[in-house]
Write a protein that binds this DNA or RNA. Structure first.
Lengths: 369, 369
DNA sequence: GTGAAAGCGCTAACAT
DNA sequence: ATGTTAGCGCTTTCAC
């Protein structure tokens, strides 16, 4: 927060009068009157232009923009049953991972004149519940949701209530739900395998709340990896659970990380934000990365490659995830031929400095082709 | 994009039949029937509970949750004229700067059960225009907007059409608009002064499109600074204009930056994303930061401090900006006693490694208190 | 305290 | 091709 408080300047007079003078919005009826046609005809030029003669259509169109008429979606919705809104419920809008997903979804949805109702739950089931309720009251045409709870009850309930729903970053096949997701178990395996391949024996997983499915799956992936590694040699996995998938929580986890027995020489994090925090905490504690502690994140958020040191991470195709989910939802919403299905993307490990034994120092000459 | 294409799995049968079986949503009328009261009474327990007797209220409440009734906002809106939605129109949802603002706004708005309609214009006036239109069709109760164009015409038009509007990150005083903003001229002065104080003579400004007001103001701040600096010594400012405020564009600007005559020894950027790109481009070109080129960003996005090298930046109180804007809007929307006003925050320069002559190497012992 | 009825702005079926 | 009309689900007088 900045030191200097906000300075305010008054400019116009109280708005009590403003609202009093707020003129009634123009309706289809006034347009009709002005164009000397019936309201039905106006409605037709709006929704069924081909059915009305060119001349009256012109007249109506003129009336529309001379009155600055703007159709009322609520009335339309009440009649037709479509709101042209899509609810998007995710864990944390401040996380660039979700931001990219939203970008993808918005790009496909805006072309169809859908508008997004964005809801960030901050990983609170309570808030999620409330948002679901509000979105249902608004009669959203569909829902894109990354649920807080590990079970899919809330999402299943949504579908049961007749709201087309597509899961974001969560597989829905077990419950017959549409979804666009990445294999988290596999992703975590990639990360852990990488660390064991590097020769680390004791690795830690800084994980989010077990209520979040992604955290469970990523732990499972790590578990599988350590069990494989154990067949040839000593290998251990310790889990440090924090309260939320945020930078601050990642930083706070460092104390526990450094106190762990046996002390891990590598750490993987349930997402990049946690890893960012771990990196920061490690720096503050004077622990060299990757020499004294290797770090791997998850998501490969755009900033991961720019950190110091650059962060190894498990890449998820975020934008594509958003696009896929939105397209799936659109199919369902528009009633296009469609079967419920789970779209799955593959994760991909991106190795960078934070887990590379010694900084690769390539002669400059080799850099350009 | 990941190599492995999405794998799909079919699960349930076509949804054509699904929608056919979609049962009608329960209305107030069915609740009334079940509770043996009139629909007016149901409405009363919903909106005016105190006026209905305890026993009938119970009966109605029971009917409500046994039918799983959920009120229809569209119908409510049609009658009452309030949609309980707020439109949020910003330049780029992928920019953590805006993300923080949205967080702030959402936190105050969600408590009043407003829901955000989020629209990212990607700096396109066209898209902005379309979104304004759609949001007006939805009859949003209010609008939070960071406009694309440097003039405030579009925003003024919105207000003229009766839509309460608060400017985000833009001062509205000149047009009698509500706003929550930071003094961009001052902010840019801070950045440029800092660079000149460091002894740099030729500095560059990597700037966004002149259509964007923030870019104009930040240039103006830099201009004032260089003029002051000139009074004592040689000082120059070159502007490199790019097409958008993104990482990629920042990276692309590096070529021009290095080719500039006289070659600048320091660069300030119109926002952090550009600075991130510049940093990346500089690294690729083998230019040492800050030794050969000092870099300062703008916004102080959360990731700025974690980069390599850590990025000096002009901090804006993002979350607070969102909160302030939302509160202002709420005042207007709810018709609370209210005067149009421009809330102004002060920017603050945060100096980090990217503009510090030689990396500060503090003995470890000094780090903790 | 409760019910009846009008109407918010629009669409769609039917009539002309 | 255009007009008339009956609602969509709800709120809100106004009677009782």
């Amino acid at each position: 927060m900045n030191r200097v408080g906000p300075a305010e300047r008054r400019r116009s007079s109280a708005s009590g009068t403003d609202r009093a003078s707020a003129k009634r919005r123009v309706t289809i009826r006034e347009v009709a009157r002005l164009a000397q046609v019936s309201i039905g005809t106006v409605s037709n030029v709006l929704n069924n232009p081909s059915v009305v003669s060119a001349t009256t259509r012109r007249r109506v169109l003129d009336a529309i923009d001379s009155t600055r008429f703007v159709r009322n979606t609520a009335a339309h919705q009440l009649r037709v049953g479509k709101s042209r809104t899509i609810g998007v419920v995710l864990l944390d809008i401040a996380n660039p991972f979700f931001t990219e997903i939203v970008r993808g979804a918005e790009h496909v949805l805006r072309d169809q004149d859908y508008v997004l109702m964005l809801c960030s739950t901050d990983e609170s089931a309570n808030r999620e519940h409330r948002y679901f309720r509000v979105l249902e009251e608004h009669r959203v045409d569909g829902l894109l949701v990354c649920p807080v709870d590990s079970d899919l009850e809330s999402a299943v309930a949504l579908v049961a209530r007749g709201i087309p729903t597509v899961l974001l970053d969560r597989d829905g096949s077990s419950h017959g739900l549409c979804s666009a997701a990445v294999d988290d178990i596999r992703g975590a395996e990639l990360a852990a395998d990488h660390l064991f391949d590097l020769g680390h024996q004791a690795i830690a997983l800084v994980n989010g709340p077990a209520a979040i499915r992604q955290c469970i799956d990523r732990k499972e992936g790590a578990r599988r990896s350590v069990q494989r590694a154990r067949r040839c040699r000593s290998a251990s996995l310790q889990e440090i659970v924090v309260g939320a998938l945020t930078i601050d929580q990642g930083e706070a986890a460092v104390a526990a990380l450094l106190a762990a027995e046996p002390r891990p020489s590598a750490v993987m994090c349930a997402n990049d934000l946690l890893a960012f925090g771990v990196l920061r905490g490690l720096a503050a504690a004077g622990v060299a990365v990757p020499e004294e502690m290797a770090v791997v994140g998850y998501d490969d958020v755009v900033f991961a490659s720019m950190l110091s040191p650059s962060l190894s991470s498990v890449r998820q195709p975020k934008y594509e995830l958003g696009v896929a989910a939105a397209e799936l939802l659109l199919e369902e919403v528009t009633g296009a031929p469609h079967e419920h299905r789970a779209i799955r993307f593959e994760p991909e490990l991106v190795v960078r400095a934070s887990s590379t034994p010694r900084p690769v120092s390539v002669p400059r000459a080799l850099l350009s082709p």
